[in-house]
């Protein structure tokens, strides 16, 4: 399963809910304001680092760049472009969005 989170972890519990429901081995793609979860040195960092033991975490690079957060993305989070986004969606049996 591919899980997509597009809300800031500081404003909504979308990521929290996602992590509560995603089974081990799932892929999690952070897009739009969801990318703020993928950054170093924030109050969400520890939570996401812990989650990376169980999930592969991806981030849409275009949304990182738009927000001026280039160079702040956590080690181990995999950047994807739009083509990579499509590949992720087609390579998983289902996609769930946490709005």
């Amino acid at each position: 399963m591919l899980h997509i989170v597009n809300k800031s972890p500081f404003e909504r519990n979308s990521l929290e809910s996602c992590l509560k429901h995603a089974v081990k081995g799932s892929a999690i793609l952070l897009i739009e304001d969801g990318i703020y979860a993928a950054l170093k040195g924030t109050q969400a960092t520890a939570r996401v680092q812990a989650a990376m033991q169980d999930y592969t975490v991806y981030v849409l690079q275009a949304d990182v760049d738009a927000r001026g957060m280039k160079g702040r993305v956590l080690e181990g989070v995999k950047p994807v472009d739009y083509a990579g986004f499509v590949d992720l969606a087609t390579n998983h049996n289902a996609v769930q969005s946490w709005l």
């Binding site: 500081f10 703020y36 690079q61 760049d65 738009a66 927000r67 001026g68 957060m69 280039k70 472009d81």
Partner: peptide, 20 residues
């Protein structure tokens, strides 16, 4: 809150096709 991100340096919206 997340409003602080509005004035963060280095924003580059070319790839998302939105006005910076």
């Amino acid at each position: 809150d997340d409003g602080v991100y509005q004035v963060a340096k280095g924003q580059d919206t070319k790839s998302i096709g939105v006005k910076n």
